[in-house]
């Protein structure tokens, strides 16, 4: 795998960093790739915003920072406004469609939305919208195998919450797979 740069962004408390950690662990532990994660402490981290930079590669990652990302996983309008313009041409934006206005995204970048909050609410745990996003990312990014993500979710969340978190992952994954099927990219 070539160096793949992923940025995750949203509000503090949405589990943005945990989502990044799950993606990084899926790559490093369960797919034997190299992965780094950097949490943003820059000016953009103020005001409740939160972001993580994840780099995945088959080669050692000597520089863990991202300028323009290959993929953006975004869970708030504020974060989208900040980071959507910093996605590479030919990149991909995955957004929470009830929290980010599709019309605000750069038209030149492929963007796919998921009602992660609603899915999480249907599972009676709104807080796990981040895990829904990870499932969605797993399905549409095609970076790693599904099992690697599931193993990472299972080992990163508190004991006793795995079943529901994996359901959330599955629902996000299904939504992504359905979208790809509609696009004829299965």
């Amino acid at each position: 795998m070539e160096r793949t740069e992923i940025r995750l962004a949203g509000f503090g408390g949405q589990g943005v960093i945990l989502a990044g950690m799950i993606i990084g662990r899926a790559a490093a532990i369960y797919e034997n790739l190299e992965a780094t994660l950097v949490q943003s402490f820059g000016p953009e981290a103020r005001g409740g915003a939160c972001s993580a930079q994840v780099v995945i590669s088959t080669e050692p990652v000597y520089y863990p920072y991202i300028d323009h990302s290959d993929m953006l996983v975004v869970m708030s309008q504020e974060a989208s406004t900040l980071f959507a313009p910093r996605v590479k041409h030919g990149g991909l934006i995955l957004y929470e469609q009830d929290l980010v206005a599709a019309s605000s995204l750069p038209p030149s970048i492929r963007a796919l939305g998921v009602p992660a909050t609603r899915i999480a609410e249907d599972l009676r745990r709104k807080m796990i919208l981040n895990i829904v996003m990870v499932g969605f990312f797993a399905a549409v990014s095609r970076t790693l195998g599904r099992e690697a993500f599931e193993n990472a979710v299972r080992t990163m969340v508190p004991p006793g919450t795995e079943t529901l978190n994996l359901k959330a992952f599955d629902q996000g994954y299904r939504h992504g797979a359905d979208l790809l099927a509609k696009e004829g990219k299965t």
């Binding site: 503090g12 949405q14 943005v16 004991p159 006793g160």
Partner: peptide
Amino acid sequence: SNYVAELWRRMEDLMRKTDMPAE
């Protein structure tokens, strides 16, 4: 005993701690 509600508080704490370590 499994304090079911507590489990999810742990999940919430984990998310808050990782997102906002300084806070």
